[in-house]
């Protein structure tokens, strides 16, 4: 890849008025997150290593009293950012987006159906993936077989919390997974409740970035799990996460008629 750093730096600081840039940079023979202030050398920017920059942004944001922050952002991260803006966690006016179109390889790794950011600044738009093969195979199974599959997968869980720690939209102040209310068993594996609670907690936020799956030391196909949950949300409520306006059905149904009818 020819040096995208110069272009990203120009867009962030010269064209769009950022005070800071959050991107991925090569240093010490490794690629990692870099936070650069205007005027500093941006260094050797990389766009091929999928760090979840919105998670990283969310962690440093509470410490940032002022200034505009440019973020190199993929489509899934852009959608995650929208979810955070919608919930008042991040002020959208302070974030400058530098859209990164994912490579074919990255699209394939994520079985991504929606890979092109709303504004493509870096890279060329690739074609979305039609279907996740594993989702298809699991959908064809009986519900017992499907449950067996996930039970076997979740037995490998070593409770590192990577799936929630690295998730851009895991935003509760106090994580219910760390309480004993539903996740009763201390120790490992933490049991199905751990994963199901997480699934429900994210059902109106997940943007299928795949960071949970990439960072899972047990190699659990968590992205497929997410895709299947999200498909249910779409089929049942017509809801898709990722924009700044659509209100979550988990909030709207509380005010609708359906709930009252059920009470009768």
């Amino acid at each position: 890849m020819n040096d995208p750093g110069k272009e990203i730096s120009r867009l962030a600081f010269d064209e769009r008025g950022a005070d800071y840039l959050l991107a991925v940079r090569e240093e010490y023979g490794n690629a990692g997150p870099a936070f650069v202030a205007k005027g500093e050398d941006v260094g050797d920017i990389r766009t091929d290593i999928p760090y979840q920059l919105v998670t990283i942004l969310r962690k440093i944001y509470p410490y940032m009293e002022d200034g505009k922050i440019a973020v190199v952002i993929r489509r899934c991260e852009e959608k995650a950012l929208n979810e955070l803006i919608k919930r008042g966690i991040i002020d959208g006016d302070r974030i400058i987006r530098i859209g990164l179109a994912c490579s074919e390889g990255q699209i394939e790794a994520c079985r991504c159906t929606d890979p092109v950011p709303s504004c493509v600044d870096i890279g060329s738009p690739g074609k979305g993936w039609n279907e996740d093969q594993l989702s298809k195979e699991l959908s064809a199974m009986s519900s017992e077989e499907r449950l067996d599959f996930w039970v076997a997968q979740f037995r490998k869980c070593n409770k590192c919390y990577a799936c929630s720690t690295n998730c851009p939209v895991c935003v509760c102040d106090h994580c219910v997974l760390e309480e004993c209310t539903f996740v009763a068993e201390k120790g490992i594996p933490p049991g199905m409740a751990f994963h199901l609670i997480r699934a429900y907690h994210l059902s109106d936020k997940c943007t299928e970035c795949g960071e949970c799956e990439r960072s899972c030391p047990a190699h659990i196909p968590l992205l497929t799990f997410r895709k299947m949950t999200n498909r249910d949300m779409k089929d049942l409520y017509g809801y898709e996460s990722g924009d700044t306006e659509t209100v979550s059905p988990l909030l709207t149904t509380l005010e609708g008629d359906l709930l009252e009818e059920e009470e009768d």
Binding site: G29, N30, A31, G32, P33, I49, P50, Y51, I56, K59, I60, Y63, N158, K159, C160, Y161, A162, T165, N166, R214, S215, C216, P217
Partner: peptide, 22 residues
């Protein structure tokens, strides 16, 4: 110090950590 982020290009951890690491 506010957090730990696994290094994705590290040949040992490959962007993954255990709960102690995090």
């Amino acid at each position: 110090l506010i957090g730990v982020i696994p290094c994705k290009t590290d040949e040992i951890s490959q962007g993954r950590l255990c709960i102690k690491g995090y």
